[in-house]
Design a binder for these strands. Structure first.
Lengths: 194, 194
DNA sequence: GGGTGAGTGTTCGAAAACCAACGCTTTTTT
DNA sequence: AAAAAAGCGTTGGTTTTCGAACACTCACCC
C-alpha cells in the first residue's frame, strides 16, 4: 500500500516550512501554528501526521540519521585505507543533496532528537569496533583514540556542510596528516601505515 | 467566500510546474499529464481547475496582462514627462517579482494567449490615445509613431527582464535620447520638449 | 485573585483531491 | 494499413484535508 500523494505533499510542505522557519526562529519558540501557516496546512492535518513539533523533529532526525548510518558503513574503510581524496569527494556528494537541511538540523539539540549527536555516535562506534578488531595491544585507551577519530571526522563533515562544493584544496593533506597521527597510536611503533 | 487553501495550493503547484516545464519543453509538446506528474497532482484535479492546458496558459496570461495594464497607466506619464531614471527603477521593481515567470511566458505565442503581444498592445494603445490628445497636426502618421514608441518600451522591458537587477547604467541616456527623437515627431518644430 | 490571550490537542461535517477506470482521438510504430 | 501507445476528458467511490469549534493549560497583567 503506497502512500497517498496528498500525504507525501503535506509532509513535504510541513517539513520544508519547519526547516525554513528554523533558520529564523529557534526550535523552542516555533509553534505548530507557525509551521501550518507557513505551509498552508491546517492544524488538524498537522496532528494527523505528527503528535507534536517534537515528533516532527524526531522523525526528521531519525530519517537523516538512518541515511547517514547506511553511508558511514560504506565510507568508513576509506579513511582507514588512506583514500582521502576519494573519501572527501564521496562525502561531499553525500552531503551536497542535503546541505541546507543538515546545516539547519545541526543547530537543534533536543533530548530525543539531536542529529549532530547521532552522527557523532555512529562514527564513534565505528572507530570503537575498528580499534578493537586490531590485534595489537593498546598503550592508549580505546575511547580516547575513538573520540579523537570521530571528532576529526565530524569536523570534516561540518566543514563540508558549511563550505559546500568549493575548494577542497589543502584539506586533503591536513586530514591525511591527522589520520596518520591517530592511527599510529594503535599500531606497534615499527608497524606504521604508509 | 474566500477560496479554500487547497485550491490555492493546487493552482500554485500546477502553475509552478507548468512554468518550470516550459523552460524545458515547448508549450505544444507539454501534456497535461506532464504538468500533473511534476506537481504531484492528479489529472482529475487538473480538470477541476482548468479546461485544458490552453485554459491554464490563458488564465496566467490574462492575470499578468491585467497586472501589467494596471501598472502601465501609472507609469506611462513618466516616459512622456522624461522621468527616465524613476521610470527605469519603478519598472525594474515591477518586473523583479515576476522576472522568471514573465521570461518564460514571453516565449509562448498562442492565438488566444500571447503575453508579449498583450503587453505590446497595451503600450500601443497608450501611445495612440496620447498622440491623439495632442493639439498639433501630425505630419507623420499616428500609427507609425505609436508603434515606434511602444516598440522602444517593449525593448526596454525585455532588456530588464533579461538582464535583471544589475546595472541600468548607460541605459537611461540611451532611452532618453530615443524618447526625445520620437516625441519630437508629434510636436511643431519650434515646440521641442526639454 | 480573576481575567485575558496565546498555544495545545481533539472532534466532526463539508469540501477538495485522489485514483482507477472508461471511451475516445491522435500519434507512433511495425 | 493495422496495431500499439500515448494523450484527452469524464466519472464515481474513497481518502485526505480543511475549517471552525471546543476544552484545556500556561504565562502575563491589572
Amino acid at each position: 500500500m503506497a502512500k497517498d500523494v496528498r500525504k507525501i505533499k503535506t509532509e513535504r510542505d510541513l517539513q520544508n516550512a519547519f526547516l525554513s522557519l528554523l533558520t529564523t526562529k529557534g526550535f523552542r519558540q516555533l509553534t505548530v501554528a507557525d509551521i501550518c501557516q507557513a505551509s498552508l496546512t491546517s492544524r488538524s492535518t498537522f496532528y494527523a501526521h505528527y503528535l507534536d513539533k517534537y515528533d516532527l523533529l524526531e522523525q526528521m532526525v531519525a530519517h537523516y540519521t538512518a541515511m547517514f548510518a547506511q553511508r558511514v558503513s560504506v565510507r568508513f574503510q576509506q579513511i582507514i585505507a588512506g583514500q582521502i581524496d576519494d573519501l572527501l569527494h564521496s562525502l561531499l556528494a553525500d552531503m551536497a543533496e542535503n546541505r541546507q537541511t543538515l546545516q539547519v538540523l545541526f543547530t537543534v539539540h533536543e533530548p530525543d532528537a539531536d542529529l549532530k549527536a547521532n552522527f557523532y555516535q555512529l562514527l564513534y562506534r565505528q572507530w570503537e569496533t575498528f580499534i578493537k578488531s586490531q590485534p595489537v595491544t593498546h598503550p592508549v585507551p580505546v575511547d580516547l583514540i575513538a573520540s579523537m577519530g570521530s571528532n576529526v571526522q565530524m569536523t570534516l563533515i561540518e566543514w563540508i556542510i558549511e563550505h559546500g562544493e568549493n575548494s577542497l584544496d589543502g584539506v586533503a593533506e591536513a586530514v591525511n596528516t591527522i589520520r596518520k597521527a591517530i592511527l599510529i597510536q594503535i599500531k606497534a611503533p615499527d608497524d606504521q601505515l604508509s
